[in-house]
Amino acid sequence: KKYKIKVYVKDKKTKKWKKIKEIEVDTKEEALEAIKKLPPNYEVKIVP
């Protein structure tokens, strides 16, 4: 079972969220580790 991490950042001009990358991992633990490495201003969604 794979997890997709969708990473969004808020556009300063439009104030809208835009997706900047998608990370695919195998476990939820890996997903949480990957999220920890991202800057705090990123919004993250984990999709099972």
Rank of each mutant, 00 (worst) to 15 (best):
K15D: 11
P40G: 09
I20P: 00
I5W: 05
N41I: 09
D11P: 02
K2E: 05
K4H: 08
I20A: 04
A31S: 03
D11M: 06
L32F: 14
D11A: 06
P40T: 10
E33Y: 04
E33C: 04
V9D: 04
I23D: 02
V7E: 00
K13P: 05
V47T: 12
K36M: 14
K21F: 08
V7Y: 04
L32H: 12
D26I: 06
E29C: 13
P48W: 06
I23F: 13
P39S: 09
K16M: 07
E24R: 06
E24P: 07
K45S: 11
T14W: 04
E24C: 13
L32R: 09
T14V: 03
P39K: 08
D26E: 12
E43R: 15
K16L: 09
L32Y: 13
T27A: 02
K18H: 07
K15M: 09
E22N: 02
V9M: 10
Y8P: 00
I20K: 07
K21W: 06
E22M: 04
W17Q: 02
K36N: 11
K28P: 11
E30A: 09
L32M: 12
K10M: 09
K18A: 03
Y3S: 01
Y8L: 02
K12F: 10
E30M: 08
K28M: 15
K6N: 12
K16A: 07
P48F: 14
K12L: 14
K6R: 07
D11N: 15
V7L: 08
T14G: 08
K28Y: 14
I5C: 04
E29K: 11
E33W: 03
K12R: 09
K10E: 07
Y3Q: 01
V7H: 00
A31T: 04
A31G: 05
K45Q: 08
I5Y: 08
L32S: 07
L32Q: 14
K10F: 11
V7F: 07
K15W: 02
K4C: 13
E29N: 08
E43I: 12
A31V: 12
I20T: 03
I20D: 02
K1I: 14
K36T: 13
K37P: 03
V9L: 11
P48C: 10
E29V: 07
N41R: 11
Y8M: 02
I5Q: 00
K1V: 12
K21E: 09
E29M: 13
P48H: 12
V44W: 12
K36W: 04
K21M: 15
K13L: 12
K4I: 13
Y42S: 10
T27Q: 01
V47K: 04
K19M: 12
K36R: 12
E33D: 12
I35W: 03
K6P: 01
K15Q: 15
K16E: 06
N41G: 15
K21S: 14
I35N: 00
E24F: 15
K1C: 05
K1Q: 11
V7P: 00
